[in-house]
């Protein structure tokens, strides 16, 4: 994950409290989404950025995950994201994401 983004997330978690921050991803691909999820939960696996060795344990979802989708206005979701479900490897992403939730 971009180092500047890691810094922003770290600061926001400090400001609002880890339990109050939820990260929502829009990644194109499963592995990269998993890496982002790992970074905001267990720490930066590449040990390159400000989240290296920092276990924020934030809640993290991909925008296409069922559990998250249910909380949105269905029409808005359909208009903004709907078509991408035909494009993205949705199931693969969901499987990858579930690994980073207890």
């Amino acid at each position: 994950m971009d180092l500047e983004n890691q810094k922003r997330i770290k600061d926001l978690a400090e400001t609002h409290g880890n339990e109050n921050v939820v990260v929502v991803l829009g990644g194109a691909e499963a592995e990269a989404s998993g890496l982002a999820a790992e970074t905001v939960t267990a720490g930066d696996p590449t040990f390159a950025g400000p989240l290296a060795g920092v276990q924020l344990g934030l809640s993290v979802y991909h925008i296409t995950e069922e559990a998250l989708k249910e909380t949105f206005d269905a029409d808005v979701y359909e208009e903004q994201v709907g078509m991408m479900e035909m494009v993205l490897p949705v199931e693969e992403i969901a499987a990858e994401m579930s690994q980073f939730r207890g």
Binding site: N5, V22, A28, T64, Y77, V81
Partner: peptide, 21 residues
């Protein structure tokens, strides 16, 4: 909740996620 959005140009971009959340 305080939501952080990490969109992707070639997946779902930030502003589209913002509208949903």
């Amino acid at each position: 909740k305080k939501v952080v959005i990490l969109g992707d140009r070639d997946g779902v971009p930030g502003p589209a996620i913002e509208e949903c959340v």
